[in-house]
Amino acid sequence: MKIDYKILWLDNEMNAFIEDDVILEIEQHLISEGFLPTIITTSDEDDFLGKLNDSYDLILTDYHLNNLSGADIINEIRKPERSIFTEILFYTAKAELTDTHKISRVSFLETNGKSATHQETIIAEVKKLIDLTIRKFHHIVAMRGMIMHETSLLDSKMLDLILGSLNRDNINFKDLAESIYDQLLELYSTKAGFVNTCKEKSKFKELTKDTFVFSSDYKIQTLKQIIDAIGEVTDFSADYKEEIISIRNKFAHANLLVDDQGREYFKYKEGGITFDEALCKKIRRDIFKHQKNLDALENRLAETNP
């Protein structure tokens, strides 16, 4: 499971889709589902084939193109050497599609005779197909793996920002460092010698390199110090602690259960939160939000780099 969702879209009249905000509407639908959308569009068949690989979650194309037929496109996508098994939607305003149901993981849409416009019909069908692929992503065991992976990436990003800021004269880490030293001495008796050495020799940078000692809680405290010092960045530290660190820790210690209908879900402690599809959708949105928060902080640090 991942937070990114990639679409490759081919249409000789692609400018019309862009100008009418069709692409934007599909992007907004993915964002509302908690995904980070990347929609790569092209109006040229050769360009499409050059971009074609197995990284996409969905491929969209008009069935009637200038230089290639829909059958040609299918043959290109399904070539053994490409090893692409992505869901594909072909659409056309002509009623010429026959026996298409026999092709695995390929959908066909005729928009003629519909009450809605050609573009409106395509939008509705694309959303349905996106939702279908998302449901395939939603296996709850895979979801835990995605959350642990994505939050670990955020954790690494935080540490990079901290290490890049420790030598700034305009940020005073002294009081924060003293507070973290004291917390660590209390919580990790096995690390007492290491922490004491760092404290006595003022080696806060060495402390940050120990991933066991310098946990996500201390990283977010340090990031808050950076945010407060440089200004013009909204303090997201409290939300990050609740929406990322806390939820990750609970998910890591939740138990996998099965209900009477055979549905799998994770439950954190008796009477605690249930990690179902609705909550996982919110978690994806929160991860996306804090990715943007960290990017904004990174940009602000670059702007104020002495």
Rank of each mutant, 00 (worst) to 15 (best):
E96M: 06
S32L: 12
R284W: 00
L68A: 08
T304I: 13
L89W: 04
I245Y: 09
I162M: 03
D57H: 15
M1P: 07
R285A: 10
N15I: 03
Q225D: 03
M148Y: 00
L89E: 01
K219D: 04
L24N: 11
L163A: 01
L294D: 06
V126W: 03
D46F: 05
H149C: 07
D239N: 12
T274V: 15
I134Q: 03
L68N: 08
Q261S: 10
F251G: 01
A192V: 02
L58G: 05
E186T: 11
S156I: 08
A278G: 08
R168M: 07
W9Y: 15
S237G: 05
L223A: 03
T222A: 06
V258S: 10
E19T: 05
C280V: 11
H118E: 12
V141D: 03
E81S: 15
I244L: 02
A278Y: 10
F212V: 09
G193I: 07
A71H: 01
N249Q: 08
F35S: 08
L159C: 02
F214V: 04
K157N: 09
Y265D: 04
K289V: 12
D217P: 00
S179C: 06
V233C: 10
I283P: 02
S179N: 15
T61R: 09
I134W: 00
K174P: 00
D239W: 04
N196T: 09
M143T: 05
D155F: 03
H290A: 07
T304C: 06
Q119F: 04
V126H: 02
S43N: 12
L166P: 01
L301I: 12
D131G: 05
K2H: 06
K6H: 11
D11T: 03
D175G: 00
L132S: 11
E178F: 04
E242M: 12
E19K: 03
G262T: 05
I273H: 00
Y188S: 03
K267A: 11
A278S: 14
D21V: 01
P306K: 06
I122Q: 02
D182L: 13
E19G: 02
L49V: 13
I77A: 07
L24F: 07
S202D: 13
T222R: 04
K201L: 12
L36N: 14
N53A: 06
L8P: 02
E200Q: 12
N75R: 15
D46K: 14
D210Q: 14
S32N: 14
I220K: 03
F85R: 15
I220G: 02
N66V: 14
A177Y: 13
I40C: 00
H149A: 13
Y181M: 03
P80D: 10
E264C: 09
H64G: 01
K199Q: 14
F212N: 11
I88E: 07
H139C: 11
T304R: 00
S107T: 10
S83V: 03
F90M: 10
I283W: 01
D11I: 01
L256D: 04
E242K: 13
E110A: 11
R284K: 13
A296D: 15
Q291H: 14
D155S: 13
S43D: 14
G271T: 09
R300I: 15
M14L: 12
R285E: 09
Q119W: 03
K292M: 11
Q183D: 14
